[in-house]
């Protein structure tokens, strides 16, 4: 479904991604781990099409189509969704209207009928309950004044409603207490299906106790330095990142 080949990306002239290659198939859950500054969030944002990043080399194919040539909204229409590490507050834009407009924009782009207000509300009512979210948040401006946990739940609500083919969670666990983490993880697990792929970007192994990945990749200095199964996350939890960084550091520098 997603094929990343030798991806290089920079921000303001600084190269952050230095040749990432990664294949994610439908039905799989991949975890991207790594220390701060390793490029995890950059990878997520480049896939989503954030304007601050310049791709200098490489290719990202999504269902065979080049993602890098698409505008952010076109990537969403194709089925890409990123849950933001820091969801944006948008004063004056009603949360429910926003979500309904987003869903209908995607449905329209795919040639599907738009949902009316009634159909939309019946679609999201159950999702809100599952996420243990205060329904009043729907009638507030998008993310404005939401607590950290409320913002993350709102991201997962959007994901559940938009039902993407590829969901990327950018440090969704940061700032969540253990109960909120469990609820958010349940929301993500409910979306696991043979047709869908999920990429979980996280610094800590903790989230992976709840969202168990099929593959774990460790990023360091803009490259994937190790890939393995879910046991790799446990090993990182135990030993930290330094041993991998030491092992992968070029010999000349070690000497």
């Amino acid at each position: 479904m997603l094929k990343i080949d030798n991806l290089h990306a920079s921000v303001e002239g600084n190269e952050i991604l230095r040749g990432i290659s990664l294949t994610v198939n439908a039905g799989e859950v991949h975890a991207i781990m790594g220390p701060n500054g390793s490029g995890k969030s950059t990878l997520a944002r480049v896939i989503a099409g954030h304007q601050d990043y310049e791709v200098t080399a490489g290719e990202v194919l999504f269902d065979g189509q080049s993602l890098l040539e698409l505008e952010p909204e076109e990537r969403a229409w194709a089925g890409v969704f990123m849950a933001f590490q820091y969801p944006i507050e948008i004063p004056g834009v009603n949360n429910a209207y926003f979500l309904k407009a987003a869903l209908n924009a995607q449905r329209k782009a795919r040639g599907e009928d738009e949902l009316d207000a009634m159909e939309f509300m019946s679609l999201i009512r159950g999702r809100i309950r599952d996420l243990d979210m205060d329904p009043a948040l729907l009638n507030r401006p998008v993310n404005e004044g939401f607590s950290g946990g409320e913002k993350k739940r709102n991201e997962i609500l959007q994901m559940a409603v938009l039902s993407p083919k590829l969901a990327i969670l950018d440090e969704t666990d940061s700032g969540l207490d253990i109960d909120a983490l469990r609820i958010v993880a349940n929301g993500v697990n409910a979306l696991r299906s043979p047709e869908r792929a999920i990429i979980v970007v996280t610094h800590y192994q903790r989230l992976l106790n709840y969202i168990v990945p099929d593959f774990v990749h460790v990023l360091s200095d803009g490259r994937i330095v190790r890939s393995g199964g879910k046991e790799l996350a446990l090993e990182l939890e135990e030993r930290g990142y330094s041993w991998i960084e030491a092992e992968t550091r070029p010999a000349a520098v070690v000497a």
Binding site: G49, H50, E71, A76, I88, I90, A102
Partner: peptide, 13 residues
């Protein structure tokens, strides 16, 4: 950032 957030959800520029 607000524009990107809206667009990332499928709302056109």
């Amino acid at each position: 950032d607000s524009l990107f957030y809206l667009r990332s959800r499928g709302i056109s520029l």
